[in-house]
Design a binder for these strands. Structure first.
Lengths: 234, 234
DNA sequence: TTTATATTTATTGTCGACAATTCTTGCTAA
DNA sequence: TTAGCAAGAATTGTCGACAATAAATATAAA
């Protein structure tokens, strides 16, 4: 998985390493969503002191992967449908704006790089059509490039440093390696087109629709699952 | 100042209290922006151990008031013009979306409350025209009510829990107790109108323009300051 | 049996000390 | 004089132990 936060250096301190391990464990569901976290137990398991564990927990809290209450303790964040939809609405706002700023602020070279990337994806796509690869890495790469292209540190930190951990968590736990590959590819193309024409307004609009489409796709999926469950129960 | 984060309980633990004190110190400039933080010194000054100080520092980092580098230390965040503009762009995206959601999700009672609040502000405004009061508390109250009205926990946490500390810091340090009172009041009225008509699209548009107007107001102010400085130097 | 209270247990918050790393100072050599 | 290196000082990271708070259990009263 190459989809690491591009703004972050490699871990140096031990609490950094533990943070990364815990992050993976939570995102991939090895630590159950909503479960309570026992500091003594975790510290023992990772063979570190409670202090450095708490340091790691603080970072997890920063990207909203756990929640802490004073004198009570930490819990892994819950994965609710409402939370997922809220997350996508937030993404729509932030990434939409990031896309507008990208259209204004990206260098010509950055734009060319992104166009090349898309062309390469097109080739891959022709080979093995609509498979996981594109949606998994390609999609993330595309969105990262746009976000970084905004050249707005505030937006970059919020989206890459915080929001995307949650996004990955939901994707893993709800098992949505989205089958929108083909349509998403076209949408990506149109967005890049708008950016290369320096049309911030259109770029934002397209990005927002792109994310809103994902959200609606999820809503439909959920509705179908519910219907299936209900017919199963009867 | 009643403009506390409405989602947060009163501090119980000592690191909570120190966090609040440091927060005020940073926001109001008692700790200089960009200055280095010495853990031993601060711990001594507040008469606490380094552990609980570090706990407080972690919370400050969470709302982006300080920045930490591994093995090097913490610095109070810098107050640059670019940072301020970036912040307002982010606000535009997030509060715009929050406003749209508020139009969809606020209860009739919440809307009525907000209308009453505005009517009261109108009275205050008639008495002491355009003074600090309205812009200081009234403005913050209004924005908070809209954000909470979104009923979107993700948005609420991001804006109230993180962004607004920085906003207050910039307002203090750059001394902008904005003189846009009258215009802002009208804009607020229009936004509430759109919300009460459940017109999410218009509500978002108006909120974005409202914040963008603030940003442009700041840009002008800065440009004037620069011009004044230059003519002074000659 | 159920509710309320008291006691015990476990967990989190706080502390001071040591280890690892970075910064500073002073020295040596070109 | 300046550049680079080495020893020392200071700062941050990590550790284990104790104190304060919350949860669990047992006991007593209604």
């Amino acid at each position: 998985m190459l989809l690491q936060n591009p703004t972050k250096k490699t871990a140096v301190t031990t609490s950094d390493k533990v943070f990364e391990q815990l992050q993976h464990a939570i995102v991939e569901g090895d630590m159950a969503a909503g479960s309570k976290i026992s500091e003594p137990e975790l510290a023992k398991r990772y063979e570190i002191s409670r202090s450095t564990l708490r340091e790691a927990l603080n970072r997890l809290e920063k990207c909203h992967l756990i929640e802490r209450k004073a004198n009570i303790g930490s819990r892994v964040v819950d994965c609710t449908i409402e939370g997922l939809l809220e997350l996508y609405i937030t993404r729509e706002a932030l990434e939409g704006m990031a896309c507008r700023q990208a259209a204004l602020n990206m260098t010509d070279k950055e734009i060319a790089d992104m166009q090349n990337m898309l062309a390469q994806h097109a080739g891959d796509k022709a080979l093995q059509d609509g498979v996981a690869y594109y949606q998994e890495e390609g999609d993330v790469d595309f969105h990262y490039k746009v976000i970084l292209g905004s050249h707005n540190q505030q937006l970059i930190n919020l989206i890459c440093g915080q929001l995307y951990h949650l996004v990955r968590m939901y994707r893993c736990q709800f098992g949505m390696h989205s089958p929108r590959a083909t349509r998403a590819f076209t949408e990506h193309s149109n967005i890049i087109q708008a950016i290369s024409e320096r049309d911030g307004e259109l770029a934002e609009l397209l990005m927002r629709r792109h994310i809103a489409a994902s959200r609606k796709n999820i809503e439909n999926k959920i509705a179908l699952q519910k219907a299936a469950q209900q017919s199963e129960e009867t």
